[in-house]
């Protein structure tokens, strides 16, 4: 194997049910119901999923939800906006932690 990540592994997700299948089944039931249309459409949920996937930098989820979104009638404009939301929140989260540094520095400094 030349890489830790293999895109073929996405199709093998079900193998995670090989041990303690009841836990995997519970997870899958919850997952499928969560991602099905509710108050939000499948497309809106998939845009959130894509943004989260970028924030977590999960290549499997990025692959999967890009395809889901193309199939749901989304486009690169919408997906790019969603990715910017992830980037903005990640960036904002980094910056707001700057206050921790400021607080610590203030506490330690004369």
């Amino acid at each position: 194997m030349s890489s830790y990540y293999d895109d073929q592994d996405l199709d093998r997700f079900g193998e995670m049910g090989a041990h303690r299948p009841e836990l995997f089944e519970l997870f899958m039931k919850y997952y499928q119901q969560t991602m099905a249309a509710g108050v939000l459409t499948v497309r809106e949920k998939a845009l959130i999923a894509l943004a989260v996937a970028h924030a977590l930098q999960c290549p499997y989820c990025i692959d999967a939800y890009t395809r889901v979104l193309l199939e749901a009638g989304s486009n690169m404009e919408e997906m790019t906006e969603a990715i910017h939301v992830a980037a903005a929140i990640r960036g904002g989260a980094a910056l707001i932690h700057g206050l921790q540094a400021r607080n610590t520095a203030a506490r330690l400094s004369i």
């Binding site: 249309a37 459409t41 499948v42 497309r43 395809r67 193309l70 199939e71 749901a72 009638g73």
Partner: peptide, 18 residues
């Protein structure tokens, strides 16, 4: 029809969007 190697989404969801 899709513009690539993926399937079309459900008709009933794509129709209102189009």
């Amino acid at each position: 029809n899709p513009a690539g190697a993926y399937f079309p989404g459900p008709q009933e969801e794509l129709e209102p969007r189009f």
